[in-house]
């Protein structure tokens, strides 16, 4: 296991690449999804009840 993560001495270069790619891509995806979900909810609420205040 340790040998696998060491990647023949290149682990120190490889894992930060995968880690940052994973964090940034998941981050922007999660952010977008959360934001659009809230907006959909707000738009639906306004549609069903035009008195809902979104200000």
């Amino acid at each position: 296991m340790i040998e696998y993560f060491a990647m023949g001495g290149y682990g120190v270069y490889i894992w930060p690449c995968y880690f940052l790619s994973f964090v940034l891509l998941i981050g922007i995806g999660r952010n977008r999804y959360k934001s659009v979900k809230e907006l959909r909810h707000l738009a639906n609420a306004k549609k069903s009840n035009p008195a809902v205040d979104s200000l």
């Binding site: 990647m7 023949g8 001495g9 290149y10 682990g11 270069y13 490889i14 690449c17």
Partner: peptide
């Protein structure tokens, strides 16, 4: 040539 670093 590049060993495991090619996985990047």
């Amino acid at each position: 040539q590049q060993g495991h670093s090619v996985r990047i």
